[in-house]
Computed example of a mutant assay.
Amino acid sequence: MEHDIHHPRPESLYDSSTVINVSKTGRMISAGAGAALLYLACANFSKSPMNSIYKMLAGGYLLYRGISGNCPISAMVEDNLNPQHARAVNIRTKYIVNRPRSEVYAYWRQLDHLPAFMAHLHDVEVIDEKHSHWTVKLTGGLELEWDAEIVEEEENELLGWRSTEGAAISNAGKVMFRDAPDGATELHVTISYRPPAGYAGAGLARLLNPAFAAMVKSDIRNFKNYVEGKREHS
């Protein structure tokens, strides 16, 4: 079974949170009402704590709806045939690696070696044959973590993975290995990162920008140099 890595979907709740389904007017009204409810809740908490908690919950939901443009309840119950998803970063590139296909595949399949040549990865901890824990560190000490699973694997041919349920950012990738002239390997790489519609904060903002995409492409080029260089010095 082939998975769509351009729009990775680790869980239905996450996917519904990426749909932008609130109009501009609706967002303004929701944000205003949410802020008002939160203000009233805080002002009257000592007099009526239970009622204030309800107002905080309702206000927080409305504020999220207004800021993000996403109404999770509507997204989960409506049959939306053409949802407008939050912006994603889709990275596609290919390189010729001057090493045999089996060797190139073996290097990539050792996921805990990826941080050695991929600067945007701080650590990949292998849990078992299918599961791993990924950590990305960005400038300013920002850090993102998620668990991932291998969803496609054909030895020396194909490796596909995606983030699992509960990830802070939905992501997936696929690498295809093809024979090239003179015993080399043609490497085709596609990686996709997509946040929830209401993402906020510098961490995800820095992750999902053109500079980050360029860095990942550079990392893949580093893989080519890494594999060829390892062989030369072995």
Score class of each variant (00 low, 15 high):
101 R>D: 02
76 M>H: 13
105 Y>C: 00
85 H>A: 01
122 H>Q: 11
71 C>H: 15
118 M>W: 04
104 V>Q: 06
86 A>Y: 06
80 N>G: 05
136 V>H: 09
82 N>C: 04
113 H>D: 11
104 V>W: 03
122 H>W: 08
133 H>E: 08
112 D>K: 14
137 K>P: 01
134 W>C: 00
125 E>M: 04
71 C>A: 09
73 I>F: 13
144 L>K: 13
81 L>C: 02
135 T>G: 02
132 S>V: 00
111 L>H: 12
104 V>A: 09
80 N>F: 02
138 L>W: 09
108 W>T: 02
86 A>H: 11
107 Y>L: 06
141 G>P: 07
141 G>A: 06
92 R>W: 03
107 Y>P: 00
133 H>Y: 14
85 H>S: 05
90 N>P: 00
145 E>G: 04
91 I>M: 10
145 E>P: 01
124 V>R: 07
71 C>F: 11
140 G>P: 07
138 L>S: 06
141 G>E: 10
117 F>N: 00
82 N>G: 02
117 F>W: 15
146 W>F: 13
132 S>N: 09
96 I>E: 13
82 N>L: 08
70 N>D: 09
131 H>T: 08
112 D>G: 00
73 I>N: 09
134 W>I: 02
132 S>F: 08
80 N>K: 14
91 I>A: 08
124 V>D: 04
139 T>S: 10
145 E>L: 00
72 P>F: 05
91 I>T: 08
145 E>F: 03
147 D>Q: 07
143 E>K: 15
138 L>H: 11
117 F>Q: 01
108 W>R: 05
148 A>S: 13
137 K>R: 15
127 I>F: 04
133 H>Q: 07
98 N>L: 02
112 D>E: 12
76 M>I: 01
83 P>L: 06
107 Y>V: 02
123 D>T: 05
123 D>L: 07
78 E>Q: 14
100 P>W: 14
76 M>Q: 13
88 A>Y: 04
95 Y>F: 10
83 P>R: 13
94 K>N: 15
90 N>S: 07
131 H>W: 03
104 V>Y: 04
129 E>T: 04
148 A>N: 11
133 H>K: 13
129 E>F: 03
122 H>F: 06
120 H>F: 09
93 T>V: 03
106 A>N: 14
111 L>V: 06
74 S>D: 11
142 L>N: 11
144 L>G: 04
141 G>H: 11
128 D>K: 05
143 E>D: 06
138 L>F: 11
98 N>V: 00
97 V>K: 01
122 H>G: 02
83 P>V: 05
128 D>H: 05
102 S>I: 02
97 V>P: 00
96 I>N: 11
